[in-house]
Amino acid sequence: MNTSYSMRITIVLFIIGIMMAVLYNTVQQPVERDTRDVWEIREELSQEKKRHSELLKEIRTLNEVMKRYESIAESSPEVAIKETIARLEESVGLTPYQGPGIQLILKPSPEAIALGTTLHPVPPALLMQLVNTLYEFKATTIAIDNQRLIQTSAIRDINGKTTVNGKPLAMPPLSVQVGTLNIEDAKKLKAQLEASSIIDSFYLDDVLLEIGEPQEDVVIVKYADAVKINYLQQLDKGD
C-alpha cells in the first residue's frame, strides 16, 4: 500500500473520529430545556425574593451583634460571650421553650377502642411526616412525648418500638407540643393542619390526631442529653 495514500486515509479517519465523537457528545447531553411557564417562574422568583429578605435580615442581626460586641467588648467581653452562648443554646434547643404554640394529642381512634384492636406504637414514618408538615407550616420548636427535637434528633424504630432521641415513645395517647414564632403563626398552623391530609394519614393507623387551641404559653422541655458533635471541627483562627 502506498504510504501517501495510507497517511491521507489516516488523517481523514482521524478527522471523522473527532467529528463523530463531538456529535456523540452533543447528542448524549442535550441542553436541558426550560419548560417552566410564567406562573412557575413567578413563584420561583417570589421564593428567591423571600430568601433574599431572609438573608438580609440575618445580615442585619449579625451586624447588630457585631456592634454590640464592639461596644461591650471593652467593658466586659464575658457578658457578650455569655449572651451569645445563651442565644445559641436557645436556638439549638438546650433551653426550655415558653411561648406561643399549640398542643397536639395523639389518641387511639374511637373505632379502634370500640373494636378492641391491639394498640401499636405510632409508626416512625408517620411521626416524621407530622414533623415535616409542622416545620413546613412554620413551627419553630417541637417536642414529641416530652422529647425535644433538635437538629440531630432521630425518629426511628428500635426493636419494634418507636423512639425519639433514642427514647421509646409511650403508647397513644401522647402529646406533641409545638412552638411558633407568634400567636398568629400558631393560629395559622392550626388551620393549615386541619386542612392538611395528615389527620387522615394518622387515622389510617388507628390514631386520632387532636389539634388543640393556640395558646400564648406553651411550655416545651429542653433537650435532655448532651449534643454530640462527632464530625464538626473547629476552623483555624482567621479562616
Binding site: I9, T10, L13, G17, I18, M20, A21, V22, L23
Partner: peptide
Amino acid sequence: LPLLGLLLGLGLGLLSDMQIPVIYQNYL
C-alpha cells in the same frame, strides 16, 4: 495506521468532551 487514526480521533473527541450547540448538530 488508519485504524489507529480513527481511534485517536474518537479518543481525543470523547476525552476532551467537546460539544457544539444543538442547532449546528445537523451540519455536523
